[in-house]
Amino acid sequence: MAPQSGLARQRTRSAWVFLAPMLFVLAAVALYPLLRTIWFGFTDASLTSFGSARFVGIRNYLEWLDYGDGNGEWLGLLVDGRWWSAVWNTVRFTLVSVTLETIFGMVIALVLNQKFPGRAVVRAAVLIPWAIPTVVSAKMWGWMLHDQFGIINDMLMRVGILSAPVAWTASPDTAMAAVMMVDIWKTTPFMALLILAGLQMIPDDIYEAARLDGVGPVRTFRRITLPLVLPAMLVAVVFRALDALRIFDIVYVLTPNSPETRTMSVFARENLFDYDKFAYGSAASTLLFLIIAMITIGFIYATRMDLSGTRE
C-alpha cells in the first residue's frame, strides 16, 4: 500500500474511532454468542451442565458406534434424517416464499409507482401486515385457519368450494402451504417497498425516450425497468432469503410439532431446550449458520452483487 498522507491517516483514524462502538457491540452480542455456540457443538454440554462441558470432538456431527461384533452404525447430525428433512423444509420454504414475495412485491411496487389519487394512503396501508408483530399475525392466521371456528373454512364452505372443513395447519398436506401463505402475506409489503424505492430511482425521461422509440409496456418493463431495478431487487432478495432461512416464529406459533414444517431453527430449538440435547442443538445451530453463510456468499458471487458501496 502506498504511504498515506497525514490527512488520509487522520481520516482513517477517525473512521476507526466512529466504528469502534459498533464493532464492540457487535462483538458482544453477535460474535461472542456465535463462537460460544460453535464451541458447545464440540462438547457434551447439557442444559444443566454448561460449566462442566467437556470437549468431545466432532461426535455431535458424526460418530461411528461400534456394536463390538463387527457391526456398527453412524450417528450424529450429518446422518440424522430429521435434520436433513428440516433442512429441506427450510430450503423449500425459502425458495417458494421468497420467489412469490418478489413477484407479488414487484406487482405491488409497479402499481404504487403510478400516480393516482390517494397513493400516499395506499402506500402506508400496504405496510400494515409488515408492521404487525409476527407472533400476533401468526396467532391471528391460526384462528382464521382453524378447522372448526376459522373464518377461512367458513367462507370456502359457504361459497361451496369445500364440502367439509380442512385442518389447514394440522393436516400434513397443507401445513407447509399455510406457513408459506402467512409469511408471504406478511413480507410482501417489505419487498414491495424496497422494489418501489428502486423503481423511483429510474428517471422519468428514460421512459419518455422509450415512448418516443415506440417501445410497448411489456418490452419497456423487460428491457428498461427490470434491468434498472434489478440491483435493488437482488439486495431485497438477499435480505429476505437470509430472513427466511432462519424462519422460526411463524412455524412455532402456527404449526408446532409438525414434521412437515419443522425448519432448521425449529429443529435446533427443540434439541437445545426440549430434548435437553444442548450440544446437539448447538451443532445444528452451527450448521445452520454455515448453510446460511454459504448460500449468501454463493448468491452474492453468482449475481456479482456490488456490496462495496462504490459505483462501477
Binding site: 428517471p203 425521461d205 428514460i206 419518455e208 425516450a209 418516443l212 428498461i224 434498472l228
Partner: peptide, 20 residues
C-alpha cells in the same frame, strides 16, 4: 397519434440515455 408514430425524435436536456 402515438409519439412513436409522429416521426419525431427528441433530444432531452438530461440526455435520457438508457444507463444499462
Amino acid at each position: 397519434v402515438l409519439p412513436a408514430k409522429r416521426g419525431v425524435s427528441m433530444v432531452f436536456q438530461s440526455y435520457a440515455l438508457y444507463p444499462h
